[in-house]
Design a protein around this nucleic acid. Structure first.
Lengths: 115, 115
DNA sequence: AGCCAATAGGTTGGCTGTCGATCTATAAGT
DNA sequence: ACTTATAGATCGACAGCCAACCTATTGGCT
């Protein structure tokens, strides 16, 4: 599954994998992939602009790490990012509950049509 | 919550409310809204093109109902639509499982970071 | 030494799908 | 007469993700 399916929930995913510690961009991709058991395959063209946006919003900050010639950008959650993650989680709950209720209505709960 | 959040899952919602019986477009909106306890508010500009697309795909068929001067279009699931709905449901399962696993990782399941 | 794959960063144009605005028309309520 | 709800529909704008592409370093293989 690609990120097109996660539209609207990408920010939460990114914030979530950064919760347990800072990562660089490439590691964010593999972290999401691992946690989802290989199901979610984010693209670089997807996450870099997204990470930039989250930094502009103050939800995370980035610092350049230089090991010799290798330069990597380390992304880290801010306090605002942590609060935003909590919001994303409750929104995810509300979202799945709503869609789930439509997709698999509890029998006898909704209005009865021709039965 | 508007349909922008449901991007990619709208088809499933539409097929699902039509499962228990044919409805016209306006009733589809209210059905989704009711089943989701008022959370999902689809727009006409959203559902009519979507219903058209589903009809083109053969997942539902529409017939014009005329009660006096009032003309309404009745949408009805086809067999292909029923099969597609089953697919949408299993995709929804896969989707929520994947996102959920990233957003709320089971403790001790994933790779251990700084603990 | 030469080559390729993996890692790491990034940009850009394009596409898809939903939104908001707008239009027409009938029925019912005040 | 006027407003609101019901019912259908279209269309431009916009957001967000993707595919493709580019650069560069590191390390394995031959």
């Amino acid at each position: 599954m690609k990120a097109s399916a996660v539209r609207g929930h990408l920010d939460g995913l990114l914030l979530s994998v950064l919760e347990s510690g800072p990562l660089h961009g490439y590691a964010v991709i593999t972290a999401v992939q691992e946690r989802s058991n290989g199901v979610l395959e984010l693209r670089k063209g997807t996450i870099y602009p997204a990470l930039d946006k989250l930094e502009r919003l103050g939800l995370l900050r980035s610092t350049w790490e230089s090991e010799g010639e290798r330069r990597r950008r380390r992304y880290e959650l801010t306090d605002a990012g942590r609060r935003s993650l909590a919001e994303e989680r409750s929104m995810w709950q509300e979202f799945t509950t709503a869609i789930g209720a439509v997709l698999d209505p509890a029998p006898g709960t909704g209005p009865k049509h021709a039965t």
